[in-house]
Simulated scan of single mutants.
Amino acid sequence: MPEAIDAIESVHHIGMSVASLQAALDFWEGFLGSPARWTTVLDHPYLSRVVGYPGIAIKAAFVDLPGGGVIELLDYQAVERNTNDDATANPGNVHLCLKVSDARAAWQRAVSCGARPISPDGPVAIDGGPNIGAQAAYLRIHDGITLELFQTPSKAATS
């Protein structure tokens, strides 16, 4: 196994390409209960070199996550875009997992903000593996993105 690289410090942000910046903000601001840190149009020449689209303009927003971390919402303008299949089994599909203190309450809030639950009954108790005693739920949010809510097991459940 190769050695770890000392230059990597931490995750800076998680980027999500979206069909509508406003629709994505409606979900995240409603779910998290706070406004985006900033919204802007990114159109500086360097950006074309970074993302590989000449003359690109991207409507963008940064949304702070509780406990640290940032979601960067990116609405690419004036380029052809295709919707990804939201099947979690497809190679290349990723999901965002948020650690929550109350999976049921977070699930209900996400659903009230427009998320579509995978399990209609809410969070599922994990009864095997390294997370036994935890609860988890997958939900589809804007653009077919999968949001996982994960509540760690209580000390009583693991002893």
Rank of each mutant, 00 (worst) to 15 (best):
Y53G: 10
D102N: 15
G144S: 09
A110D: 00
D64G: 04
G67A: 09
T39Q: 10
A78Q: 13
S48N: 04
A60W: 00
C113W: 01
A57K: 13
V63E: 04
S112H: 00
Y53V: 06
D102Y: 05
L32Q: 07
G144Y: 13
V70A: 03
N131C: 11
S34Y: 15
L74F: 00
Q77D: 10
K99E: 11
A87K: 14
D75T: 01
C97A: 12
D75M: 00
S119K: 11
V94T: 14
A105T: 05
G30P: 08
N84P: 09
K99W: 08
T39G: 09
H44M: 12
R116M: 09
C97H: 04
I58F: 01
G133T: 06
N93D: 08
R104P: 07
W38M: 08
P91K: 13
F31A: 05
P66A: 13
A61W: 01
A60S: 04
V124P: 15
A78G: 08
R49E: 14
V111A: 00
P45Y: 02
Q108E: 05
I118H: 08
L73N: 00
G69W: 02
L74Q: 01
V100I: 06
P130A: 04
R81Q: 13
P91L: 03
P123V: 03
S48K: 13
S34T: 10
T83R: 05
G133P: 15
Y53D: 08
G144L: 14
A134Y: 01
P120V: 14
N93C: 08
I58S: 02
D127Q: 15
W107I: 01
D43L: 04
E72H: 00
L32C: 13
D121F: 09
P120S: 07
A61H: 06
A137N: 07
R49A: 14
Q77M: 14
R116L: 06
Y76H: 12
A78I: 15
G52V: 11
P130F: 04
G30F: 09
D75C: 00
K99P: 08
A103Y: 02
G122E: 03
T39Y: 02
Q135S: 09
R81I: 06
Q135N: 13
L32M: 09
V51G: 07
L47A: 07
A89C: 05
G92P: 08
G68H: 10
I118V: 07
R140S: 14
Y46I: 15
D143C: 14
G67V: 11
T40W: 03
V100E: 02
E72Q: 02
L74P: 03
P66M: 10
G114H: 01
L47R: 06
Y76E: 06
P120R: 10
S119L: 07
A36W: 02
D143A: 12
G52I: 14
A60L: 01
A137P: 14
Q135A: 14
L65R: 07
G122S: 03
A60T: 03
L98W: 02
I56F: 15
G52M: 03
A105N: 07
W38E: 12
N90E: 13
C113L: 01
N93W: 07
G133W: 02
T40I: 02
A137L: 12
P45F: 06
R116K: 07
S48H: 10
A89E: 08
V79H: 05
V94A: 07
A110C: 00
G30M: 06
V100A: 02
G128A: 14
R104V: 13
